[in-house]
């Protein structure tokens, strides 16, 4: 349907339909963020002998996040006197806009995708890198020493992990012969890439957790060391923007992992009667659950160990994987 719209005549009606669909996606994502936060708190509670939210919105705390967001929105908008005001206001926007931009290229099902561009994978990685600029800006503009340290850590972490992240998907691109996410999904009909590219998957997953700034790589926030890291001076809705960016990225990255390694909307054999959207949601939720599980289990890695791990372990492994994949591809072509 969306493809038809994109190639159809540019009338107002078509524009409004397209616009309505985009708003629909926005609501899906915001709905996800609302309930991902709740799910995270519930799952963590379950793993940590607690109940999690259970007061607002019935015994499952279904309205807890809504209440939290409302509270954040009506909070006083406090900007520290010593802060660099324009940058301080701009930073959350820089951080959260790319998070929504990357959603355009994710193929949720074979029909539901907004921009089917040839360099989809590259686009994702390029755009998501902009968020770090927002984080560094926030740390600098706050004029707070802890925030600055958090921002520096974020910058260093992004450089160290973006590279293995890109390197690990090259294996997938080699096998598919395309950077288009639709092509990548369709190429997995004979087996998901998690089976063909297990090394790439592991490297990608670790790098993705680091990209998302989640435990055990939450150095930029590092509650016990840097208090809250780069957003220590933020309150109210500006703070909410950072949290929103974080959770939208969690959504986007899990979707990307689902698409690239878990076969996107493709069903398991003999279970093709279940719609693709359900399959996508199921795989996606497994990834989200893994991320939450990580958060409950691991202590935080140290900054210098993180660099070492990124450059000395993940990068060589990713490059070796490219080499192996190239050999594999040649070998398949021979027969």
């Amino acid at each position: 349907m969306i493809e038809g719209l994109l190639t159809s005549e540019a009338t107002w009606l078509h524009f409004f339909i397209y616009f309505a669909l985009t708003v629909l996606l926005l609501f899906i994502v915001l709905g996800f963020v609302t309930y991902a936060i709740l799910a995270e708190r519930k799952v963590m509670g379950f793993m940590q002998l607690r109940h999690g939210p259970n007061q607002v919105g019935g015994r499952w705390g279904l309205l807890q996040t809504v209440a939290d967001v409302l509270k954040l929105l009506i909070k006083e908008d406090a900007i520290p006197r010593a802060a660099d005001k324009p940058l301080f206001i701009l930073a959350p926007l820089i951080a959260f806009t790319p998070a929504f931009m990357v959603l355009a290229i994710i193929p949720f099902t074979d029909r539901f995708q907004f921009a089917d561009i040839g360099v989809g994978l590259l686009y994702y990685i390029a755009v998501s890198g902009i968020t770090t600029v927002g984080v560094v800006t926030a740390g600098w503009a706050s004029n707070n020493k802890y925030a600055l340290m958090g921002a520096m850590r974020a910058a260093a972490q992004m450089i160290s992990y973006e590279i293995p992240l890109v390197m690990s998907v090259i294996g997938v691109i080699l096998l598919t012969g395309s950077m288009n996410l639709n092509d990548i999904v369709l190429a997995q009909e004979n087996g998901w890439y998690i089976l063909w590219q297990p090394i790439a998957f592991i490297v990608f997953f670790i790098a993705a957790v680091a990209e998302l700034n989640r435990v055990p790589f939450d150095l930029a926030e590092a509650e016990s060391e840097l208090v809250a890291g780069y957003f220590v001076e933020y309150t109210g809705f500006r703070w909410a923007f950072f949290m929103l960016a974080e959770y939208v990225y969690m959504f986007a990255m899990s979707a990307l992992i689902t698409v690239v390694f878990l076969g996107g909307w493709l069903p398991l054999p003999y279970l093709g009667f279940i719609p693709g959207a359900v399959w996508f949601a199921l795989k996606f939720m497994v990834v989200i659950f893994l991320l939450i599980w990580f958060r409950v289990t691991f202590p935080r890695i140290r900054a210098d160990q993180l660099m070492e791990f990124g450059w000395k372990v993940l990068l060589p492994v990713a490059i070796a994987n490219i080499f192996l994949t190239a050999l594999l591809k040649e070998w398949i072509n021979l027969f």
Binding site: Q48, L49, V215, S224, V296, P299
Partner: peptide, 16 residues
Amino acid sequence: YLLDLGATSPFLYAFR
């Protein structure tokens, strides 16, 4: 101590 190192769960187990 584990909370200091960034792991949240052990704290709750210990307190049980």
